[in-house]
Design a protein around this nucleic acid. Structure first.
Length: 725
RNA sequence: GCGCGUGUAGCUCAGUUGGUUAGAGCGUACGAUUCACAUUCGUAAGGUCUCUGGUUCGAAUCCAGGCACGCGCACCA
């Protein structure tokens, strides 16, 4: 054995050894056969990394924690499956890819749909390979024979079937609604993709003259005077005494001079501004809601390219900020502007490019979240809330359950269509005659299912990525046989979903919703939410910020085991962690400590026969203490307290075993005092420590295990599949 | 507005249902070392556990409130 642990030399060899054994595959693991018939299964579906970039250190956290659980459970003798895969990540990937093109001086617009799709496909395939290589470097013991991609044929088939089911159940509908629209990316988003930022704005108090009542007016407060040409009413609260007499009168909109009614609706906040609200159904979601109720016209004055059209007359051809300036100018000139007040408010921005989101009226596909399922009184939301409420799905840490309920209570219908090119196409069709839309997943329809017209058009949009990844837990296990497949029966519901808290709504909630809806069963029993890795300035790591740490570089310098340990210790669920090189170096030293302590023990076992000698009470006490440590580590692992488990074994190995026990036994062996007992104790503790350490630091422990003497043929070849205590 | 989190050693963070001298990594001081390991060992310095009050035999831990920072959600136009 080398004097210093050489991770660069050993880690690749060990991974090859594991892969060659085939034991990552639960069907081939020998621990399975040696256990009783009612063997429990343990399955984690890996959150699929986006196939658009190499992994960053944040992925390292998830991968490490999952591998830790998987290795521990595998050693517990369970039929253990960790299923890997990657996500095509629709919008995310398209953005990254277009940036790449830009760097090369190209543009995605030069390509037609097929060419574009093909080049992105190639791009993701390349990244998939990199991701896979990185996962292996991290020591991931996942079953590569079951690897999946969100665009695999079978996955897409499952996704389509779910879509069809939703359609047939009346939960998927085509509707013209206000959606969040990014004028730069020219696509709609769900509510989650909008980031609100506080901004200094101006609240304009605008006078609308009353028709037939000279010199009388009603004043409304608005931050968006440029939308005035889209106004189709003014609304006041029915309880507002100030305006009671004005209800049902006609006001004159001050830019294009149209006549609009004054209506009453209890959604209007009496205390805001003047208590009178201008209603622009086409460009505001509350206004749209009120407009629907009162059957108001929705005048779409803003085009999808971000410029106003001729319906906004004097503002036509201007973008939003230009139009705002111009409208204020007009209002000032004609005496309609009562006053301007500085105003701090939250403005929605595109989470990717920070462009201001425009609420726009668009035809999109929505999933009804609060509508009852056929023959039940329960909605998709109800099913998910119920599962978490009665602890069928447990969230760790539990405080996120509150957050989950809060979000669920406010949930709105989910817009799943995206006006981009990379993703799973929506199998939707629009009839040009009767103007109705429908879903058809099995064939290309020839005519409209409603009016039989042959004048139908394929929907050009793709599905929100989260709609497909929201089905990941069962889609990955379905293979081609769906709900009857063997893997699905064996491993679903899966045991743990390990992911970051930042995608609790985006992903976890949707998996619970779609999992229960499609299979009737929860997708996983426990959700473990790890913290985000942040840099020294507490910034979230992201490629666009350029502050990512490349795990490859860290692994090369300090080794995977050191990195893993640094990511586990001090990392508690739901709390973010800051990773420092010093910490990683510290655990590199620990790996070396394990190596050298083992080297010492092994070099002193040459004349030992492996038999258990009679022990005195002092030696028994030492072994009792070992048992106590095992119990503590086991309990912590069962309780998702990985940091504590890691600290416990770290402390025991270094400061009890190496510092105290080895020193004592060293003297006894040298002086030939109870030498056999000393050798026995060293051997037993080392062996057990390697087991305990293996889920944390798989490489160094396996490498040493391979050098352990094999007394009475009792040693299993690979530590990886050795039985936990 | 509603909700959540954090505040522990110089720095970054742990602290398991309240229970002896509050821990880790790095850093600091002094010393050791051909004997498994300088990626080492020993010793030490360094903490009013954010503040105030309460419950308790006992509180970093539970409760109430204050201060500071961070975050999530929300149709206040």
């Amino acid at each position: 054995m080398d004097k210093v642990y050489n991770h660069q030399k050993i880690e690749p060899k060990i991974y090859r050894l594991w892969e060659k054994s085939g034991f990552f595959n639960p069907d081939k693991s020998p621990l399975r056969q040696s256990s009783n018939k009612k063997q429990k299964s343990f399955c984690i579906i890996m959150p699929p990394p986006n196939a658009n970039a190499p992994l960053h250190i944040g992925h390292g956290v998830g991968t490490t924690l999952q591998d830790l659980m998987i290795r521990y459970q595998r050693m517990q003798g369970k039929k253990t499956l960790w299923l890997p895969g990657t996500d095509h990540a629709g919008f995310e990937t398209q953005v990254v890819f277009e940036k790449e093109l830009e760097k090369q001086g190209k543009s995605g617009l030069e390509m037609n749909r097929e060419e574009f799709f093909k080049s992105v496909w190639g791009y993701t395939q390349k990244n998939k390979k990199i991701v896979k290589k990185q996962l292996k470097l991290l020591g991931a013991s996942c079953d590569w024979s079951r690897e999946k991609f969100t665009l695999d044929k079978n996955i897409q088939k499952t996704v389509y079937q779910t879509l069809e089911k939703l359609w047939k159940d009346g939960l998927l509908y085509r509707g013209k609604r206000i959606v969040n629209y990014c004028p730069k990316h020219k696509t709609a988003f769900s509510d989650l993709e909008v980031k609100y930022q506080e901004e200094k704005g101006t609240l304009y108090f605008v006078k609308y003259k009353l028709k037939d009542k000279k010199d009388k007016w009603i004043t409304v407060a608005t931050t968006r005077p440029e939308t005035i040409p889209g106004d189709t009413a003014i609304a006041v609260n029915p309880l507002d005494k100030r305006y009671k007499k004005l209800i049902n009168l006609i006001a004159i909109e001050p830019i294009t001079r149209r006549e609009i009614p004054i209506i009453s609706d209890k959604l209007v906040d009496i205390d805001f501004g003047t208590g009178a609200l201008k209603i622009t159904p086409a460009h505001d979601s509350l206004d749209f809601e009120i407009g629907q109720k009162h059957k108001l016209e929705a005048i779409e004055t803003l085009n999808f390219d971000g410029y106003f059209n001729k319906l906004a007359r004097p503002l036509a051809g201007l973008n939003v900020s230009q139009a705002r300036e111009k409208s204020v100018e007009i209002l000032k000139r004609n005496g309609s502007l009562e006053k301007e007040v500085d105003y701090l408010h939250q403005v929605g921005h595109c989470y990717k490019c920070n462009t201001k989101i425009e609420p726009m009226l668009m035809d999109q596909w929505f999933i009804a979240m609060t509508k009852p399922l056929p023959k039940t009184k329960k909605s998709l939301r109800d099913l998910a809330v119920e599962a978490v409420k009665n602890k069928k799905v447990k969230i760790v840490p539990s405080r996120f359950e509150k957050v989950f309920f809060h979000w669920m209570n406010n949930i709105k219908d989910w817009n799943i269509s995206r006006q981009i090119r990379w993703g799973i196409p929506i199998p939707g069709y629009h009839c040009q005659d009767c103007k109705q839309s429908f879903i058809e997943i099995n064939k290309t329809p020839k005519k409209c299912i409603y009016c039989q017209s042959k004048n139908i058009k394929k929907d050009p949009d793709v599905l929100d990525t989260w709609f497909s990844s929201g089905q990941w837990p069962f889609a990955t296990l379905f293979s081609s046989e769906g709900i009857k497949s063997k893997d699905f029966k064996t491993f679903y519901p899966t045991e743990v979903m390990e992911t970051g808290w930042d995608i609790l709504f985006f992903w976890v909630a949707r998996m619970i919703i779609l999992g229960i809806y499609r299979t009737g069963k929860i997708p996983f029993k426990t959700v473990y939410l790890h913290g985000l890795v942040r840099d020294k300035d507490r910034q979230k790591m992201s490629k666009s910020k350029g502050n990512v740490i490349d795990p490859l570089a860290v692994i090369e310098t300090y080794g995977t085991d050191a990195l893993r340990m640094a990511l586990i210790i001090g990392n508690t669920p739901g709390n973010d962690i800051i990773i420092s090189e010093d910490k990683i170096r510290g655990y590199r030293n620990f790996a070396n400590k394990i190596w050298n302590a083992s080297r010492f023990v092994l070099s002193n076992l040459s004349d030992y026969d492996g038999k258990k000698p009679i022990l005195n009470s002092r030696d028994k006490k030492i072994l009792m203490n070992l048992k106590k440590t095992q119990k503590k580590v086991t309990a912590n692992l069962n309780d998702f307290k990985f940091s504590l488990a890691g600290e416990t074994i770290y402390h025991y190995f270094w400061h009890v075993f190496a510092d105290k026990i080895i020193e004592e036994m060293k003297n006894r062996i040298r002086n030939n005092k109870n030498k056999k007992q000393a050798q026995y104790i060293l051997y037993i503790i080392l062996k057990d420590c390697l087991k305990m350490l293996h889920p944390f630091m798989p490489f160094v422990t396996e490498a040493i295990w391979q050098k352990l003497p094999n007394y009475q043929n009792k040693k299993t070849d690979l530590l990886m599949i050795n039985k936990w205590f």
